[in-house]
Write a protein that binds this DNA or RNA. Structure first.
Lengths: 225, 225
DNA sequence: ATTCCCTATTTTGCATTCAAAATTAGGAAA
DNA sequence: TTTCCTAATTTTGAATGCAAAATAGGGAAT
């Protein structure tokens, strides 16, 4: 198994919450599960620590990082900036074909909205945001966007919405698609910011931060893998 | 030596160009120099690879990453977005004390400009940009900014300027300081973008990209450490 | 001289090992 | 029972060892 694959697999385990935020990462068990020795596992953990998904505790191993409200706010703030930039660039560079794909994803999303299928709605939603970032044609931007969004993925795409919020979000997405089709970079940038600001408010209101009560320096629970 | 320190030391070696872009990284020699074994060295290299400073070649070790023109353009583009965001946030959050420090750095920079001291000018210049990002009060933003700017540091802060360009840059910096003092987020954001666009043009014009002629898949020179 | 091929050496990637640190478990004292 | 101390166990962090891959070297054939 290649280094990058080890990183991906562990990242998936963390994002799925299989090792919940704050839980200690059991090297031994993970090694057994991935059928690798501790050396490549630990290399991957250091990389994930640099990404912010893992917290390293000197002489005490590593745990799944947990986000405070402040972390969440900071991450959404940067995400807004990145999506705003992506929106502007995308309007300059997006192809007609890409616009077609995004329009199709939007239509599918609207369909799931009408069916009240939040899971599928979020799936399309995420695809749209990622497609806009991809359309910016800047791999560096894609990389940063992925690392930032990975950390807020669960909050962003799991938090339930009130019916009002959901209707507003869909409405905003119509404006997003519209701005993209008109290649109105400034407009797209602006609506994306507003859209993400609303999402952030929802998430923080829902208290999605991953900090539990209690001393964060205390020995964390051990995740069973 | 702590893991993070190993990463920092190797990062410094790469940024100093001591191992030039494209050169193979000699694990053995670096181990000897840092007085560590290959295990922690390789952990650090994987982290630096994730940062984009090192390129991993399966079964063929790692080399110092080299930037193409496209990489340079992409990095500057993202850097513009990050500084623009930082500028906006900084105007909301910067303290009077921080403004004072930035004003002082600006004065020092202007002094070095008048003396024609490019090295010292760039030192102050970089301090100002970093102070604005710091004033945004968003550690996530600082982290991304550092990783992006690390990769373009040499291009950004080494490229010589024509007298016209230099005069323009100083003039832009006056506008930057002014916008910050007026806490004009939109204005600061805008001038920072313009300023960085100019810098990018300079760098690309100077042909600072790190791609050498020849097949990039060929065995690279080995750096002597 | 140049190209090809085969062997010797080096380098890589990972498993294993080992000392140091932390954690756990157990028993004595209050 | 609760608290504190000590010894056994586990876990961590890094060095070492080892097989596989890549590279370098050195003729033989053209």
């Amino acid at each position: 198994m290649l280094h990058e694959e080890v990183v991906s697999r562990i990242r998936a385990i963390l994002l799925d919450g299989e090792i919940p935020p704050g839980a200690r990462i059991p090297e031994r068990d993970l090694c057994e599960r991935l059928q690798i020795s501790r050396t490549p596992l630990r290399e991957a953990l250091k990389v994930l620590a640099a990404e912010g998904l893992v917290q390293l505790l000197p002489n005490r191993g590593s745990r799944a990082a947990r986000l405070t409200d402040k972390d969440m706010r900071d991450l959404f703030e940067v995400c807004q900036g990145l999506e705003a930039l992506a929106g502007e660039l995308a309007c300059e560079r997006v192809t007609e074909e890409e616009i077609g794909e995004i329009a199709a994803a939007h239509a599918a999303m609207a369909h799931h909205y009408r069916n009240g299928d939040l899971i599928q709605y979020y799936r399309c939603n995420r695809a749209i945001h990622e497609a806009i970032v991809a359309a910016a044609g800047n791999p560096v931007l894609v990389g940063l966007y992925n690392s930032v969004t990975a950390r807020i993925r669960r909050a962003r795409y799991v938090t339930p919405m009130t019916s009002d919020r959901w209707a507003l979000a869909l409405h905003e997405h119509e404006a997003i698609l519209n701005a993209l089709q008109r290649r109105d970079g400034v407009g797209l940038s602006h609506i994306l910011r507003t859209h993400l600001r609303h999402k952030r408010e929802e998430v923080l209101q829902a208290g999605f931060a991953e900090t539990e009560s209690g001393d964060p320096t205390m020995p964390p629970d051990r995740a069973r893998v």
